[in-house]
Design a protein around this nucleic acid. Sequence first.
DNA 1: CGGGGGCGTGAGAACGCTCTCACGGCCGTG
DNA 2: CACGGCCGTGAGAGCGTTCTCACGCCCCCG
Lengths: 342, 342
Amino acid sequence: MTGTSTRVSSPTLDEVAVLAGVSRATVSRVVNDSPRVSPEAREAVRAAVAALSYVPNRMARSLVTRRTDTIALVLSEPDARIFSDPFFASIVRGLNGALASTDINLVLLTARDEREQEKAGRFVRQGHVDGVILMSLHSHDVLPAQLIAAGMPLVLCGRPLDDRPVAWVDADNAGGARLATEHLLAGGRRTVATISGPRDMVAGLDRLAGYRDALADAGHAADPRLVVEGDFTEGGGARAMEELLVRAPELDAVFVASDPMAVGALRVLRAAGRDVPGDVAVVGFDDAPVALRSDPPLTTVTQPLEEMTQVMIELLLAQVDRTTDDVQTRVCPTRLVRRASA
Amino acid sequence: MTGTSTRVSSPTLDEVAVLAGVSRATVSRVVNDSPRVSPEAREAVRAAVAALSYVPNRMARSLVTRRTDTIALVLSEPDARIFSDPFFASIVRGLNGALASTDINLVLLTARDEREQEKAGRFVRQGHVDGVILMSLHSHDVLPAQLIAAGMPLVLCGRPLDDRPVAWVDADNAGGARLATEHLLAGGRRTVATISGPRDMVAGLDRLAGYRDALADAGHAADPRLVVEGDFTEGGGARAMEELLVRAPELDAVFVASDPMAVGALRVLRAAGRDVPGDVAVVGFDDAPVALRSDPPLTTVTQPLEEMTQVMIELLLAQVDRTTDDVQTRVCPTRLVRRASA
DNA sequence: CGGGGGCGTGAGAACGCTCTCACGGCCGTG
DNA sequence: CACGGCCGTGAGAGCGTTCTCACGCCCCCG
C-alpha cells in the first residue's frame, strides 16, 4: 500500500478509461449504472475502477449535475444545550434512517451565534448542499429568510412563529397537550395546573393552548394561578412546581410541558409529601428516555419522530426535485403513553 | 423580492463581468482579494456582485483549487449517547471557535453503524472535505484505515489503541489520574479505590494506568479488590460504588474516572451513610458541568479543551497544506480542580 | 437482398471557476 | 529621447465530470 502511495492526486475518469480500453463516456455510464453498456465493457471498467481504486470527483460531477446529493441539518441554537436534548439525537437518527436507502448524505451544521449563522448561510448558498432542514427553537434568526431568498430548498423542523411561506413539519403539540389534559380530567381531577414551556418557543405556546382548550371544552374557567412558565429543564420544572404549590396548594393534577420539567416537578412533589399519582397526577411531554426511569414512570405524550423525519425528507426532496412549487406543511399526530404518574 | 425570483439558477462570474464591464479574470481577482486590481475596477465589480447578489460556485472553484475549505468532524459512535456527552459539545464549540477566524467550515457527520460509516467514508473520499477529525471512543472501526489509505488528512480526537501512524490529540489522561490519586494520598488517605472506565476505551485505560502508577510510586501494593470497572455513566458509577463498598468497606478514598460516574458514587455513598469528604474522599474526571452542581461539589480533573481543539485544527491544517509529511501527536496537560469532595 | 431501427460507443461541448501568460500603458532611468 | 520594467487587464486553457449527438454495427423485416 505504501508502495504506490506516493501518488498525490486521485485517478480520473480518463485514466480509468485508458486502462479499461474504452472512452470516458463509457466509464461514466458504468459508474452511473446506465443500462446501455455491453457486459464486456462494463466488466473491463469495473476492473479498472477497482485496480485504481477510483472514486468519482464530487466537485466535477456536481458542477454539471447541479446536485450535491447532500443535505444539511442546521442547528441554529444559541447554546450547546441542544446537543444534550434527546429529542435532537432522535431527529438526527431519524433523518439518517430516512436517508439510509438513498445515496444522499446528511451533514450537521451548528450556528450558535450570529457569526456562525452567517458562516453557515454562506456555506449553504455556495452550493455545498441541495437543501436544508433547519432546527431553530427560538426563531428570531435571519437564516430562514436568507435561504428562502436564495431559493434554497428548506424545511423547518417545528412550526415557525410567523406565517412565512416556508415548508415545515411539526408534532401536534396542541393536540397532545389536549390529550394529556383530557386524560387528567377523565381521571376525575378537578384542579389541573400546568407548567408551560417558554413563551418564545412555539412548542411551549402550542402545548399551553392545547391545555387551555381542553379545560375550556370541559367547562373550566381559565385560572391564571394554575399556569406557571418553565424553561423545559429539570431545574426549571422544579422551581415552577414550587411556585404552583404556593399559588394553588389544592391542585390535584399537573400537565407539564416537557419530561425533564416533569421529573423536576416529581421531585418537588415528593419533597412536599404529595403522593403521585395519589394526591397529584402528573403528565409530561416528549416521551424522553428519562420518563421511563423516573419514579413513578411518567405518563407522557409521545411524538412520532420516525414519521416526522420521514416527512421532512419527503418535503425537502420534493423541493429539490422541483416536483412542487408550493411550500407544504405537515402536523404529525401525537399519542398519550400511559404509565404510572397519571 | 418575489418580483425577480423566477430566476432559477444563480448568477455566474461571467454575468458579473459583463455587468461590471470587465473580464472574468478581473472579477475573480476582486472576489479573491487579489491586490492587483485598480480601485475603479474593484468598485465596479463590487457593485455588480451586490446587484446580482452573486455567490461564487463552490463546486467550480473547488474543481480547480482542489480545496473545499471544509473539514468534517466524524462522530463514529454506535449509539446516540455521544450527543448527550457534554465533552462532545465542548469539542464542537472549541473547533468552531478555532475556525472562527478562518473561512473554513466545520460539518459534523454521524456514523452510527457500519453502514453509516461506509457512507461517511464515501462522502469524505469523494472530496467533499479537505480533512477529517475523527471522534471514535471505541476504536474498532475501519474508517481511519480507509481514510489513511485514501491519503485524506486526518486527526484523531483521542489516542488510538493501536500504534497506527496517524495524527492524534489527547488530554493527558494518565497524568490527570496520577494527579488525582496523588491528591488523595497527600490528603492522608490510606485506601484509595478507583472506579475505572471501560476497558475498550483508551481514556479509561490511561486513567487506570495513572492511578496505578501513583499508588505504586507511593509504595502501595496493587490491590485488585480496589478496582471496579464502570461505563462512564452515572448509573454505572453507582453500581460500581456499591460493589466497592462490599469488596472493601474500609476504603477512605475513590478516584472515579468520570464525573457522571462520580455523581452516582456520591449518591451511593450518601445512602450508605458515608460522609464525603469526611469518611470518603472522591475525585472525579472531566470537570463536567455536573461536577459543579453535585453535593458536595466535585474535586475533579479538567482537560484543556480549548487547547486541544486548537491543536487538532493546527495538526489537520498542517496536513492539508502539506506543510509536513510526518504525523504528529500531542498530549495536552490536565489540571486538578479542587472543590469540596476531596 | 436491401433498408430501417435499435444499441453500444466515442467525440466534444458544456458546467463555473482559477491561473498562467501575454500584452499594452505608464513610469523611471541611462 | 529610448528602453526596460512593472502594473492592471484580458484571452484562453484547463479542472473532472455529464450529456447530447452522431456514427457504425447488427438484426429483423419486407
